[in-house]
Design a protein around this nucleic acid. Structure first.
Lengths: 354, 354
DNA sequence: GATTAGCACTCTCACTTGATGAGTGCTAAC
DNA sequence: GTTAGCACTCATCAAGTGAGAGTGCTAATC
């Protein structure tokens, strides 16, 4: 049961108007503002049909119509036009990201800031999941008589380290040896793989002298691997939502904020989403049934996949926002194309044209 | 102009009642609940005097009295009784912190979580400022043909590293040499000191071959030092304030949240505060004039100083909260007494008695 | 002289009422 | 199929009302 051309026009007009003004839109104002060549009465009849089909709802008898989730879905799939970013917007994005291009985490955080500034919504950015990363080498360095540093380096240049305190003495040679020993064991294996296998049978060392040292180091080693697997989540512009009429009620604002205070939970949710630009509207989300969530993915070295996203009420400028996110993620992927995962000092990636 | 014993009793009763119920308290309810042996009329007269002296205010003619900032200050200085923590509370603190005692940053974050859970207020915790830390050694490690890792280790075992991309080739020897060279130059100097001097005259190397390599490394070196100087700030329980009657207005809630979205600014503010348990009430803060801020300091290795704090309306349980914070910071300092600054694998610090 | 009872007065809060206006839904005319 | 006309619905706002809590003053009491 397809919609007629006129119905689509009316639906689009209602969505446009409602997204702009956040107030139920009536037949008269549609007829006046959008030149559809028909009278309010006709529009009323069409509206009534659209409501029957589930595209519109009615807060109460004598109020205007409000688009339903189903209407937004139709809009996103078929009606919405991509917005061409202005030169100014493109320049803003390029400038703000390139200023920190040489440092990975900072760039990601800036992307989130930028996104919330441009969209006036709450945004977030996640560093890539690193399950697939492989270990390059492991090294142990002395600090003082009892303290050493354990350092794990991945093949894409990711580094994590932990300072740990031993309950046995050590020598420079034993540290070097254990480092080499561990490197041989784990080089080329993914973090996930190592973590899963080692946590079960914590193997002793072949060489007697190293055994106790290794016993000291292994728990920290596993813990450090876990740390490396953790993605960082940056959230920005949470307070933007206070300016939206949807959230003038304290309770709804509270619910919103509380949802995102649970960072771990939220990270898991987001990791599970598909790649590319993904829009989920209202009921399509299992929590936050009155929000829309848009996520997009960027790539590091063409391999690792990170995510950015915005969260807001279902009433949002879909065309504009998806276009911005597309541009932004392309820009990010471009920046991280040649370099490793943690900054590059000077040589920035090739810049996207403006 | 001192207050009479009876005036103090009445003031204390009003504060206690108001802190509990968040509603202006009238003479009748004081007379009924607190056994002062005088009639409401007498209390009314005293209240009137207290108001004249600036300890109480009046929302409107026919409402009860509300304590002023001045009253809270008097209460905190003279009237308030320290609360003895229950065994259960102590156990909770000990358990929750010791579970993560071997990892510094995580422990600090847990302290903030714990604090907001116990107090039902917004809380924060800062890692220590490290201006006074001194450099122990610097090392450069190879990743691939063009990528190396720069690693800086402080004498307390703090480690920071950056991956950087070179635009000149390198050899293992040159890396080792430059690392040693830099270690000799900077060992024993404080981060602050090195950062300030080097940022001005970016010295070239004495040995010709290292010159270009060093040129590549120095900018990252300085940037990494800056990173090391940055304190981490963890904020928790921001949404707790939504449950307080003081913040049922969306505008006040918004103001509150926006203040703490500016993490850098907030960090600076907090760094400037004195050591020990510090309470600033309402007007005593230059921003957030309707909040009370309580901060307390913990020590790492007896030297570095970090901070934790809570933020809430001036109406809060001062006695209880300061006691909790005192216990908590003592516990933290105890944990970080022997170990370096970034975890210790096994050997936990001596535990405080329960 | 300090304390207290009594009472008029003030102000908030919750509730009601009525007017207004936006918008629908139906019917009959075009 | 489209439109004008009109009765009807519902939210919103302002004004008005009464109850309740609490003060401040005065005069009586200890």
């Amino acid at each position: 049961m397809d919609l007629s051309e006129r119905q689509l026009q009316i639906l689009q007009a209602i969505i446009t108007d409602y997204v702009e003004n956040a107030e139920p839109v009536g037949s008269r104002s549609i007829a006046k503002k959008y030149d559809l060549g028909v009278s309010p009465a006709t529009i009323r009849n069409e509206m009534s049909d659209l409501e029957e089909m589930g595209y519109l709802t009615h807060p109460h008898t004598s109020a205007g119509r409000v688009p339903s989730d189903k209407a937004y879905r139709l809009y996103v799939n078929d009606l919405m036009k991509k917005k061409n970013l202005s030169a100014k917007e493109k320049r803003m994005i390029n400038d703000r990201l390139s200023a920190s291009r040489d440092e990975f985490d900072r760039t990601i955080r800036h992307a989130a800031e930028l996104l919330s500034e441009i969209t006036h919504l709450a945004s977030f950015a996640m560093t890539p999941a690193t399950n697939e990363e492989t270990i390059s080498f492991i090294r142990l360095l002395p600090v003082d008589e009892r303290t050493i540093i354990l350092m794990i380096v991945s093949e894409s240049g990711n580094v994590t380290n932990t300072t740990l305190r031993l309950n046995v003495p050590y020598t420079q040679e034993s540290l070097d040896l254990l480092g080499k020993n561990m490197t041989v064991s784990y080089k080329g294996r993914t973090l996930d793989d190592v973590l899963k296998s080692e946590i079960i049978h914590d193997v002793g060392s072949d060489i007697e002298a190293l055994s106790s040292l290794k016993g000291n180091v292994m728990p920290s080693f596993l813990r450090t691997l876990e740390d490396m697997l953790n993605v960082n989540l940056y959230m920005e512009g949470m307070t933007n939502i206070f300016n939206l009429p949807e959230y003038t009620s304290i309770d709804r604002a509270r619910d919103f904020m509380e949802l995102f205070a649970r960072k771990d939970w939220f990270t898991q949710k987001m990791l599970a989403r598909d790649n590319g630009v993904v829009v989920t509207i209202g009921d399509e989300n299992d929590t936050m049934k009155d929000c829309t969530l848009i996520t997009a993915t960027y790539h590091v070295d063409g391999k690792l996949v990170g995510k950015i996203g915005v969260i807001g009420p279902t009433r949002m400028k879909y065309g504009e926002i998806t276009s911005i996110m597309e541009y932004l993620t392309n820009n990010l992927s471009e920046s991280f194309r040649l370099t490793g995962s943690t900054g590059d000092g000077n040589a920035g990636g090739k810049k996207q044209d403006e």
